[in-house]
Computed example of a mutant assay.
Amino acid sequence: MTSKIDGSTPPDKLTPHQRSLPKVNKVTADDITESLKAGFSDFLARPLMSGFFGLFYAVFGILLVWCLVWLDMIWMIIPFIVGFPLVTPFAAAGLYEMSRRLQRGESFGWSDILTVMADQRKREMGWMAFVTLFIFWVWMYQVRLWLAIILQNTSFSDFEGFLNAVLFTPQGWIFLAVGTGVGACLSAVLFAVTVVSMPMLLDRETNFVSAMVTSVRVVTENPVVMLGWAAIISVTMVVSLVPAFLGLIFTLPILGHTTWHLYQRAVAPAEE
């Protein structure tokens, strides 16, 4: 006759979902500097492959702007351009894998990186993509909401008319103030839950909720440094979008590679 033994599951029997969250390290401005240097080094190590991801992202942005013009939705161009960087973390998944292999001294080709990216659909990365795209969707629809509420009596038939309505009327100034405030909150939330969660999901077996919690812990335990990193990303992305998105060919890969190295410094290695 057997008897049940009460108690928790032994530590060595825990599943990846049950293990404790990883330790979060303190990071400094020097960590960001060193991560940027390592990210730039990764870009120079494989510039064509890295640049491909930036080019793909840039072309995607150009096509979407063209579609908005073709659909006569010119009022959505500026909100789209401003919100476009929100989906950057997911777009950089291939860059994280490149940095991971370069760090380990492993050789790799196009098929290796693309296969790893394709395999992410079977893992938790797909849920993180959903979170990212959902926040981007909320961003776009909150713009439509404020347009309807604040600029309801303002007419504009082209892009120039839209700019005049937004920049040179009291209603436009209110729209910009409210939209900027809401957008800043959404951006802060997305940054907090994705700053290290994307590379973490690629690097180790964990669930997307644990990855997001870890990412938020990195931000809350290093608020000043991570705010600085968010500012670097924001300014770099805005400058990159000015020349018809083409600046992303260079800046997106460097920021993606840098994010991987910052994750390595901010989150303790997974326990074997």
Rank of each mutant, 00 (worst) to 15 (best):
Q18T: 11
M49F: 14
L151V: 15
I233D: 03
V138Y: 06
D203P: 01
L163V: 14
W127Y: 15
V189E: 12
V166S: 02
M117S: 07
T115I: 07
F134L: 15
L133G: 11
P170A: 10
A129W: 07
M73I: 15
D12P: 03
G181R: 01
I113F: 08
K26G: 07
V193R: 05
L86S: 10
L86G: 07
G228S: 02
L201T: 00
L151T: 15
V182N: 02
K122D: 11
V196G: 02
V238E: 05
E160G: 14
Q142V: 13
P223R: 06
P269Y: 04
R101L: 15
V193C: 08
L114M: 13
L201V: 02
M1V: 10
K23M: 04
Y96M: 12
A165P: 02
V225L: 00
W75M: 04
V24T: 03
A29Q: 10
L86Y: 10
S41T: 13
G39F: 00
S99W: 03
C185V: 15
N222T: 05
P89F: 03
E271A: 06
G61W: 01
G109A: 12
A211P: 01
F43C: 04
Y141P: 04
D12L: 07
A188W: 08
P199G: 06
V209P: 00
A38E: 10
K4L: 13
R46V: 13
W70G: 11
L167N: 13
G183E: 00
T236R: 09
A38H: 03
V27N: 09
M212V: 01
Q264P: 00
D42W: 03
D158Q: 01
W137Y: 14
N153M: 11
L48V: 14
V196F: 05
F136H: 13
E272G: 03
V178I: 14
M128S: 05
N164I: 08
A211H: 02
F208P: 00
D203Q: 05
A129S: 08
F130A: 14
A29M: 14
G172V: 05
G109N: 15
A184P: 06
M117L: 13
A92N: 11
M98Q: 14
T236C: 09
P79T: 04
S197F: 06
L95N: 01
W146V: 11
W137T: 15
A91D: 07
D203G: 01
Q18I: 06
A270I: 03
P243H: 07
P223A: 07
M140E: 13
R217A: 09
